[in-house]
Amino acid sequence: MSGSRMATDNEKIFDSVKDYYGKVLNKTEDLKTPACISGQKVMPKHVKEAMSQVHEEVAARFYGCGLVIPEKLEGMHILDLGSGTGYDCFTLSKLVGQNGFVTGIDMTDEQLKIARDYIDYHTEKFGYNTANVKFVQGYIEKLTEAGIPENSQDIIISNCVVNLSPDKKSVISEAYKVLKAGGELYFSDVYADREVSESARKHEVLWGECISGALWWKELYHLAEEIGFSPPRLVRASEIPIEREDFKQVLGDARFVSATYRLFKLPQETQPARQVIYKGEITGFPDQLNFDHQNVFLTGDIVGVDEELSTILSASRFADEFEFQPVSKHKKDTRNNCCADKDMEVDPFDYIADRLKRGETMDKACCSQKCC
């Protein structure tokens, strides 16, 4: 496809998405599939309290597909891709505190207006002297053009938005540029178990509903490696049922999940495999830290981690939350290395099936001295 043809097709998608989220959808109940309201999980008390303080008009226009509130947020600079009316941004505004800052970027005028209208409300509600949140007009494929400086963000989140982009490689590449070294892309999105057909991709409603623009889950790993991110680490996943017969006819046998992944921008210099001890000092997580679906750190427990996870923990905002020790050579401690050499390319559909087979109703994993 020629560059001019691709640019024209992308513009059509942008216009369609703007119209869908700016004019067609007025509230959550207007959605025609569960894609943008699935994938939620039990939330820590401090996150629930922050979410409950978001203005009801902002909350009524929330179209996210999962919880995108990672751990350790105080004082962080966070960018929300496709921030909509600001629901996630205002929640994060409360959680980062007065010394943190949250930036939302969106291309839809109608949603940006609502978000900006409630900045002062939330600043006063949270008791801040000055606003610690702002909203930028722009495209998530062109963050630097929109004025987001390179190497400026500690965390980037996105909630069911990357699938709406016709150029996902540019989204992830731009995210990499604006993250600080050790920064994290923590996002929830919709993924397919195969390449979605071209005819389905041209279905405007299914695209606007976050379905037909879904990335084949394996492609995320390829893009992350190509751009320079650490391999995606699956945090949680839940299947999205397609119930309307007319949608099933368009989509064929394709299946979809809502999945949350975390990717890190790591330094070239890696750390050796080590033993780590979680201190239990992160707000809301005094007893354990569920880092991803394979790694759960219990407070005070000794856990062996491989080179990659060792590097992630020491290069990121989590560095002060762990004690780091060399791997013990004593035979009795070798079981601590239970997470080493795990295959990070996890099929989210297999993960869900395995979890259900075990009778689990929630994401649960353990990789510590007590359960390996």
Rank of each mutant, 00 (worst) to 15 (best):
D117H: 00
S314G: 05
D287R: 03
C89M: 10
P70R: 02
D253Q: 12
S188F: 04
K18F: 01
E239H: 09
G86S: 12
L92D: 11
C366K: 04
K94D: 07
Q294K: 11
C367L: 04
W207L: 15
G280V: 03
K48Q: 15
S165N: 06
I156L: 12
K332A: 13
G127S: 09
N337H: 10
S152F: 07
I211H: 03
I13M: 11
L251C: 06
A131F: 00
G97N: 10
C36S: 14
Y118I: 04
G22N: 11
Y221M: 08
D343V: 07
L143S: 00
T33C: 06
D350K: 14
M362E: 13
F187E: 09
S152M: 04
D193M: 15
H122R: 05
Y118T: 02
I282Q: 03
E29R: 03
V133Y: 01
H77N: 13
G147Y: 11
N132M: 02
A60I: 01
E110V: 09
N295W: 04
H293P: 03
E281M: 09
G39T: 08
F322E: 04
I302Q: 07
L289G: 01
A273T: 11
Y87F: 14
D333G: 02
E204M: 09
V327C: 07
G228A: 10
T130D: 15
E71H: 05
K370R: 14
L223F: 12
K265S: 12
E141W: 08
S188V: 07
G284Y: 02
T123C: 13
D306I: 05
N151M: 02
T361R: 10
E56V: 13
Q369K: 15
K168P: 00
P149A: 11
S258H: 06
H77M: 07
C210H: 05
L67N: 14
S52A: 15
S188M: 05
